[in-house]
Design a protein around this nucleic acid. Sequence first.
DNA 1: CCTCAGATGGACT
DNA 2: GTCCATCTGAGGC
Length: 198
Amino acid sequence: MKVLWEPKKFYMEDTLDVSRALIGKKLVRNIDGKQLVMEITETEAYCGIEDKASHAYNGRRTERTRTMYEEGGTIYIYLIYGMYFCLNIVTEEKDNPCAVLIRGGRPVSGLEEMSVLRYNKPYSELTPYQKKNFANGPGKLCKAMGITKELNGKKLFSKELYISSDAPENDILIETSPRVNIDYAGEYKDKLWRFFRK
DNA sequence: CCTCAGATGGACT
DNA sequence: GTCCATCTGAGGC
């Protein structure tokens, strides 16, 4: 049988490398008998207990951050601002709390199903503004793909949610910048740990 | 195009 | 009680 998803090894590497390698990859979600596919266009790396922007800074272990201490390939999801979910992919070895935040994507297939999840409307009824902002943010991407806290702690090695092992197009230009909305992170706020493509 | 207030609830001190 | 790894809609330009 053909292997659909990236193996554990892919996620056990350096978090910055994984964060970059995920740009252009396809995130696949099978839900209610439908397949949703989103090309990843934006990621951010959160690197270990020294990273002041990370939930696991200074080795913080709580109910929420427990998932970050799992091994690479684990799904870490949390609620932000009381209303939105953020999808993260745990990287590196167990007990080294690192993760990549999936910050944005571009729909590839399952567009009609995603449109209903996102706006409760068919895609043809969306305004140009809604189409442009379909999944260009972590909360928007989760909404469009039906990703909620129930996936927290699960692995990316099942049809429920995984990263396709298909290679991205080889001519993607990947840019970097500081991470978004982490003004509290001291010297870590200027690290170029956000990766994205136009 | 832009800015900004408000929503909303769990994690944490 | 305060802080968020955010988004929307209203209003201004």
